[in-house]
Design a protein around this nucleic acid. Structure first.
Lengths: 184, 184
DNA sequence: GTCTATACCGCGATAGAC
DNA sequence: GTCTATCGCGGTATAGAC
């Protein structure tokens, strides 16, 4: 049952919801048909569990960087430059392309919540940077937070399109260079 | 045949490659089975034509903004703020999530080329801004170009996740505010 | 060129045995 | 709880008539 969820997470990441069949999940989890349908009502319910799990993991991984000591830019930079499996893309952001996920409120909710959390967490950090004089007052925390999150998500897209991590790294460095710096 | 391509473009945009069946295309194009397979060897070939077409259209639409008069920031801002069907996402960027597209060199090529073009075109504009003294020398044109493209692609992702254009608009404004300004 | 018929396969789920 | 059998449906393609 744990294996079913983990396998579903992997397959959703790689192939999305539409591209993932119950049979493929069972194969990957080394579980039988009966087992899967005993624990979960169907594909959607299993996907829901997997997406929620992935959302929690994303938050935990991000929070690790956010809690690092240092200035706001330090923490944001840590987060942006964290080691990532860039060419696999974002497990959550990916689902945004899936009409069956976006069309089902149960599946969509964890996706929406994950990004809502991420943006508000980033906004807190930017706001703190403003309070401490690291950033000018005119910098809008919500806007900047959205920009940071977007660069990551878009970086994945560009990298996958190019088949190379380069565009991702360029985009991230480009953003870091644009962030206001008190020290320069 | 023209209708087949157009319908495929629409369906790929909405449902992706995996989620689009030949039958659905035929329905949308009001064409028969035989007609489709007469003109195209199969789903992949038709998709290739549709993706190439969408790539050309994306380039044409972007070039329209890039050719506007004004400073580099003006032109970039025009491009970023152009009216878009944000919640539908990017027709090309979307395909990046599709393993069957990324796995087929024929289908992947037009996706890769479109973004390669976009980034190099944006880099030219940034470079011109540097030459004209609008941007400082230390601004890296390729990095900044990647950042701009990423904000758009990521903005779509965030907007779709939220079910609202707001995050897209925040991300775009956040980026514009981060761009160096000679006039302020 | 376009139509209809046909084929084979895998999807997603249910049923009932063990 | 897990297994196997079975089901109806749609995906993707081919064949041959018109």
């Amino acid at each position: 049952m744990e294996r079913l969820i983990r396998s579903t997470q992997e397959l959703l990441w790689e192939r999305g919801y539409v591209g993932t069949s119950p049979k493929a999940i069972q194969r990957a989890a080394d579980a039988g048909q009966g087992s899967m349908y005993h624990h979960f009502a169907g594909k959607a319910e299993l996907a829901k569990a997997a997406i929620e799990r992935s959302g929690l993991e994303l938050r935990a991984a991000a929070e690790e960087q956010f809690e690092e000591p240092g200035t706001a830019t330090d923490r944001i930079t840590h987060y942006l430059e964290r080691e990532r499996d860039v060419l696999r893309g974002c497990r959550i952001g990916r689902l945004t392309a899936d009409p069956d996920v976006m069309g089902d409120p149960e599946l969509r909710a964890p996706v929406a919540e994950t990004f809502a959390w991420l943006r508000s967490r980033l906004a807190e950090i930017v706001a703190e940077g403003k309070r401490k004089g690291e950033y000018p007052d005119r910098l809008d925390a919500e806007q900047t937070a959205a920009t940071i999150a977007a660069v990551l998500q878009g970086g994945y897209v560009l990298a996958r399109a190019a088949g190379s991590v380069e565009p991702f790294e360029l985009a991230v460095q480009g953003l870091i260079n644009l962030l206001p710096e008190a020290t320069k």
